Amino acid sequence: MSKCRGSMRRSFYAVLVLFIFCVLLFWRKLSAWKVLNLSTTEQHPGAIAARIHGTKFDAVNNRPPFIILMAQWRSGSTVLGELLNRNPELFYMFESLWPAARLRELRNISRGTIASKEISRDILRGFAKCEFATDFVKIYRRWGGSRLNENLCHGNRTSCRMHSVEDLDNFCQSFQGRLATKIIQADLELLKPLVTEDGINLKIIHLVRDPRGTAASRINYLKASYREILNILQRIPPLSDRLKPLGLLDNVPKEILQFQEIRENNPTVRGLCNWIRENTKLSPDSLPEWLQGRYHLVKYEDFALAPLQEAQRIYEFIGMPFTTHLKGFINNITHPKSSNPSIFSTSKNAQATANKWKKYLTLQERRQITKECLDVLQFLGHEPNSTSATPQSS
């Protein structure tokens, strides 16, 4: 009888231990489920959309990609950036590296140095973490371009949610890592450490444009922006070269360095084509390991010819849905009923804009650009001696 009781007691304890183990296991699974299924009323819409649409998150830091539109001055980046700016699920910053020039001045750092590049990287690191520096916020807030950030400012600089570092940090964090920016003062060398050293999940949209189109747009921009440029242009004979006198061909005259766009960008055709040579990757096979799956090339002329198709590819690359709202917006600004003639407008017939250079550049200017950039024109699929900006069919 005592043996029977002992056996029953041991069976009871075994069942009890098994029951406790099952309870603990169930509780652990329940806790994990709660973490992964936060109440949607407490999340930003971007976070909800990310889960619904099955966004690919970075395996290292479990965050959505930090999207960077990398381009050059007057290459069509503003209109392409609107693809990201008008997405309510993204926190987009227009030219987030704009304050870098002022920060260099304050710290007495020369442009192009290692320290200068670190200033730009620190800005991007802070943005990726939603941890903005006080001096960055002060400078960016005062800049007129800041009002172009749709979700941040809604077109009105006085209503921008960056009255303090805390305001901007909190607003950024509400997007749950869905961040994007356009930069025109960077290259792959500057961005590489953000991936290899900081582990940031970058997605780089690399925009390139026919150098002839970019050069024509730069002449037009300077002419529309500075009275002094008009005075210089009046001294130039008709149908001759404007590129060299304006510092847009190979070397920059001292009198032109007074203009910030010339000082802070890559103004010359020679510099532009070097940038294209060093950064453009036509085939996935040519990508270094750190860039694989992180790089998407967009030719402005392809976008101008088929905006919706190119935009769809961009959204597939960043892992977000290309919504009906965005399709309508892109169609409206690339095929408007009436184009805005302003140099600063983003609402223009895209294909006409891409081909505008053939009527604007003189024969001498076209020959100068071809001489500097023959290999680049061929590399990008453009006919060097053609007056059309439409790429050759492959």
Rank of each mutant, 00 (worst) to 15 (best):
V298T: 04
L297D: 11
N331V: 11
T334S: 08
P307C: 10
Y300F: 15
E301I: 05
Y295S: 00
V298W: 11
L305R: 07
S338K: 02
V298G: 03
W290M: 10
T334R: 05
S286Y: 00
Y315L: 09
Q309V: 06
P336S: 08
P284W: 01
Y300I: 03
T324D: 09
P307E: 11
L297K: 08
P288K: 07
P307A: 11
S342G: 02
T334L: 07
P284K: 13
F303M: 00
T334P: 09
L297Y: 04
P288N: 03
E289R: 12
F303S: 07
F303T: 08
I333A: 10
Y295I: 06
M320A: 13
H325A: 14
K337V: 14
T323P: 03
L291R: 09
Q292M: 11
R313G: 09
K337M: 12
G293C: 05
I314Y: 05
I333S: 05
I314E: 09
N331Y: 14
Q312N: 13
L297A: 08
P288I: 06
G319M: 10
Y295T: 04
A306M: 02
H325R: 11
Y315T: 04
N331R: 10
N332M: 06
L297W: 03
S342W: 01
D285I: 14
F344H: 13
L305K: 07
Q309A: 09
K337E: 15
P341W: 08
K337L: 13
F317E: 02
A304M: 04
Q312W: 00
I314N: 04
E301K: 05
Q312V: 01
L297G: 14
Y315C: 14
L291D: 07
E316K: 13
I333H: 08
I333M: 05
Q309R: 01
V298E: 03
I318D: 06
Q312C: 03
N340W: 11
G293N: 07
P288W: 03
T324R: 06
F317A: 01
N332K: 09
P307Q: 11
E289C: 05
Q309N: 06
K299S: 06
L326V: 10
Q309K: 03
Y300G: 02
